[in-house]
Amino acid sequence: MMGNNRISILIIWLTLLIGLCVQIIPWSPEYNMFKPHLLVLVLAYWLIALPHRVGMSVAFLLGIVLDLFSGTLLGIHAIIFCCVAYLLMFKFQLIRNLALWQQSIIIFAVSLCYNLLIFLLQVIIYHTVTISPLIFISSFVDGLLWIVIFLFLRLIRRKFAIS
């Protein structure tokens, strides 16, 4: 039983690491508006599916790591990931029992909050305004991609009996 527990933790962290690697891949400026926040999506899945294993501390740690890799001010993504984790963990039982298309709408809203918090912190810290209506496209892509991420990670969770 102890070996299964270690494998479960390893698989969770491996999926989060893959999400981080995909998140830090640079995209060309023409397509950057379509770039999904894959780390947020993978983190959201584990926060909804297993909130007792993946919580605020994991979200904070992933935010710090993303700050280090992306070169932003240390703590920006950590704060935002903690806010996202709070939003998802607050009603995880409700979100878990919704239909997949309804979950997709909630993930769209959470992604929009993520983008708006990044904008707000940029304004507060850097005093630059870099918002455009194109952030809705990124959030929409996250909402659509949620269906694929959810089904894929649920398949992995069931295959390895992660609980």
Rank of each mutant, 00 (worst) to 15 (best):
36 P>Q: 00
163 S>T: 02
54 V>T: 12
136 F>V: 11
42 V>D: 09
76 I>M: 08
7 I>K: 11
33 M>A: 13
149 I>W: 11
157 R>M: 11
61 L>P: 08
55 G>M: 05
9 I>V: 07
133 P>T: 13
68 L>H: 00
31 Y>P: 10
7 I>D: 05
48 I>P: 02
95 I>C: 12
129 V>L: 09
126 Y>P: 01
155 L>E: 09
17 L>G: 03
29 P>I: 10
29 P>M: 08
11 I>D: 01
128 T>L: 08
156 I>M: 10
44 A>R: 02
103 Q>F: 09
107 I>A: 02
38 L>C: 02
105 I>R: 01
30 E>S: 15
71 G>H: 00
88 L>M: 13
15 T>M: 15
156 I>N: 09
75 G>D: 11
151 L>N: 15
123 V>K: 11
120 L>T: 10
78 A>P: 14
110 V>T: 08
26 P>E: 14
8 S>L: 00
162 I>L: 02
121 L>S: 03
20 L>C: 00
69 F>T: 05
19 G>Q: 08
155 L>V: 13
35 K>P: 05
116 L>I: 03
90 F>S: 14
158 R>Q: 13
68 L>F: 03
127 H>R: 13
79 I>L: 14
33 M>W: 10
92 F>C: 10
138 S>R: 05
70 S>F: 02
41 L>Y: 11
105 I>V: 13
80 I>T: 04
157 R>Q: 09
3 G>H: 02
111 S>H: 01
9 I>P: 01
122 Q>H: 05
154 R>C: 11
86 Y>F: 14
81 F>R: 05
1 M>G: 05
148 V>I: 15
154 R>K: 15
127 H>M: 07
50 L>R: 05
44 A>S: 15
17 L>E: 02
88 L>I: 12
64 I>A: 13
25 I>H: 00
134 L>D: 11
71 G>R: 00
88 L>K: 10
53 R>K: 09
108 F>A: 01
58 V>R: 04
27 W>K: 05
69 F>E: 10
96 R>K: 14
122 Q>Y: 01
140 F>A: 13
111 S>W: 00
16 L>I: 12
79 I>D: 04
113 C>P: 00
28 S>Q: 15
101 W>E: 13
70 S>L: 03
95 I>H: 07
161 A>L: 03
43 L>W: 07
101 W>L: 09
5 N>V: 06
103 Q>M: 06
14 L>F: 15
